[in-house]
Simulated assay, not measured.
Amino acid sequence: MRAELSKLLGLPTAWVGLALGLVAAPALVFVNTPGLRRALESERIADLGYENLGIGLLGALILGVVAVSSEYTSTGDDSPGAHQMTATLLAMPRRSRLLVAKGVALSLVVAVQGTLTASATMVLTQVMLPDYAPPFAPARIAAAVLYWTLLGLLAFATTLIFRNGIITLTVFIVNSSVVSVSYLLTKLTPWAAYLPDIVGAHMFLRSMPGETHIPPVTAGLVMTAWVAAFLVAAGFFFTRRSA
């Protein structure tokens, strides 16, 4: 696990994900405050501040993707077919143990990032909009951090299945920031609210769009089941491939 942490934190792209995840959400508080102050009325808004955490999820997604994609990147022009995974498997031939170490290392990094970002975002919201911000709730902060961690693991598992970080990252970013296919599906069937990226948000947001409202604990269990299924599938494919 120490080796996987060192590898993950040694990737320049991973630091891009860390910086984006740490800075983006708190920065939105400063950017949005003037317009929000004019628009808000004199009551507290349940999700004020928490909705800014959505953009920070991009950092968790990047970390989840590069934790795997970096292993399959060519090591140089002299040997385009060689990649880091070959050396990794030589050092740790037990693939199940390797996956556990990678998953734990990723979870630790994303959890620390999420805790710092969510706490800073909510504190800034209370400072900038003291009359409207919801009270600081450690349980909601923890739920948001868990959502970040689970999404990071979901990106990790998906990249491991397809062994292509560009496609995985593009799909996740487009779905989370440009047009959410999952949200569009909720217009067709309420069951789409149980897709992983939608149901996980119910863990800490209280005014989700749509008619389906899922209790936070139920949302957490469903999200965890999705991620567990993807991790099992990723482990199945990984243990049966040559590299």
Rank of each mutant, 00 (worst) to 15 (best):
V174I: 12
F156P: 03
A133Q: 04
K187R: 12
G200H: 13
V179M: 13
I161S: 05
D197N: 11
A155V: 07
F162D: 08
Y132K: 00
V178K: 09
Y183H: 13
H202I: 01
G165N: 08
P134M: 02
L153A: 05
N164E: 15
N164F: 09
S180Y: 08
A143R: 12
S177V: 15
I161A: 05
L154M: 15
M208K: 12
A192P: 07
A143N: 13
L160T: 02
A143I: 10
P135F: 02
T149M: 10
T186L: 07
I167W: 12
S176K: 09
F136W: 13
K187V: 01
F156R: 06
N164L: 00
L146K: 02
P209L: 02
D197R: 02
F172G: 00
S176T: 13
M203D: 06
P196D: 12
L188Q: 11
T159P: 03
M208S: 06
A157T: 04
P130N: 10
F156L: 12
W191R: 13
L205D: 02
A143G: 11
T168A: 15
A133G: 01
Y132M: 04
V181C: 00
L146Q: 05
L153F: 08
V178R: 11
P138T: 08
V171H: 08
S207K: 14
A133V: 07
A142R: 00
L184N: 05
L195Y: 07
H202M: 04
P209V: 01
